[in-house]
Design a protein around this nucleic acid. Structure first.
Lengths: 198, 198
DNA sequence: CTTCCTCCGTAGTGATCGTTACGAAAAGGT
DNA sequence: ACCTTTTCGTAACGATCACTACGGAGGAAG
């Protein structure tokens, strides 16, 4: 009697968990469509049939990867901390983890961003436009600071990035089905990022 | 002499500007990769060679569409308004326009989100996770309100959406190359959305 | 009318997509 | 030894991708 009861049949020649982690990294970095099966095969060192036997389909592999991502990287607002502290830690952790690890950003928030090779030029085009929008916001913040509309010492770079993030988040939520009223409420709440009497 | 000097050769049988608007709507709704050439052909009523003669390539068509989007839908922070008012109008306009028109959301912020048919299941998977994350945040906000950590009458739904938007925006900016320090600054600025003595 | 230029759409191109049929190989059970 | 069960990888599958060669049609110029 073996310590591990092994069912009949030829044993697997690879560890599915390792393969899943590798696939997760690919999905995280390149998005769902950007992580083609060819890429997944090369990254995992497995053949297509091996992946399909282990995970069923690309969709199911992605769903498994999302679950795995939540288990490893996911985190919630700390219930034991005061609310403000909990949010602060939450955002600080995001700032760290979005810029380290296998992929950049959050796999849930931007896991469907196409970054396949042939979408590279198009992705660059919109990235540049986002940069220009951020510059526009930052310049307006600088002007406001100069005109005394913002408290002295205001970090306009961070304020501009926060405002840009609000817009970008509104766009994500609009895609997810949020209606005008919900986004309007979001916008009014987000207005509080502007420092000063208000 | 004609009022409009027309160059030699067979004239175009369609209006490129109309075709561009139609293509823009497709890109806006389905993203770059999701708007396949077959889809663009069906939407515009043009053949593939016609599109290529007029715009060069799919990439160039997309870049033209992005420019057109900026011309039509793009807007800046109003320089003539007080800063806070300008931001308020900016966000309010976003709330309206992200939920109306040809596509949902902002084409610049989320124009690369894959929504092609075969990515639908995967997109739904991460959408559900975003919903769960939003629920988690909203519940924590409700708890905070009950415990007196937030001012009475606080709109927890809007506060939760604003916090979720910050995370989603951080993810976008991380993908765009923002570093940990920049995101940390963003996070600290965004912390001001939490109402109450701070 | 002929020539020239441009646009027209049919009918393909090769590449890549996700997926799988199938025969060989490697284990357990009897 | 033999059968069963499962995994192995080769070699495809049809569909779709972005893209284009090419012969014909429609206008302007000589």
């Amino acid at each position: 009697m073996e310590p591990v009861t092994r069912r009949a049949g030829r044993p697997r020649s690879f560890d599915p968990d390792v393969a899943l982690d590798t696939a997760l990294a690919q999905f995280w970095e390149h998005g769902y469509e950007g992580a083609s099966l060819a890429r997944l095969q090369e990254a995992t060192g497995l053949t297509a049939p091996a992946l399909y036997r282990a995970f069923g389909s690309k969709e199911q592999l992605f769903e498994r990867a999302v679950k795995r991502y939540q288990d490893k990287q996911g985190f919630a607002l700390n219930d034991r901390l005061p609310f403000r502290r909990a949010v602060a830690e939450y955002l600080a952790r995001a700032a760290r983890e979005f810029t380290t690890g296998p992929g950049r950003g959050c796999m849930i928030s931007t896991g469907m961003l196409a970054t396949s090779p042939d979408a590279h030029v198009a992705a660059e085009a919109v990235r540049i436009e986002r940069e220009r929008a951020l510059d526009m916001i930052r310049n307006r913040c600088d002007d406001a600071l100069e005109q005394g509309e913002l408290p002295e010492g205001t970090d306009t770079e961070s304020l501009a990035r926060a405002l840009a993030a609000v817009i970008q988040g509104m766009s994500v939520q609009a895609r997810d089905g949020a209606d005008t009223r919900q986004l309007q409420g979001l916008a009014e709440a987000a207005l509080a990022v502007i420092p000063g009497r208000g």
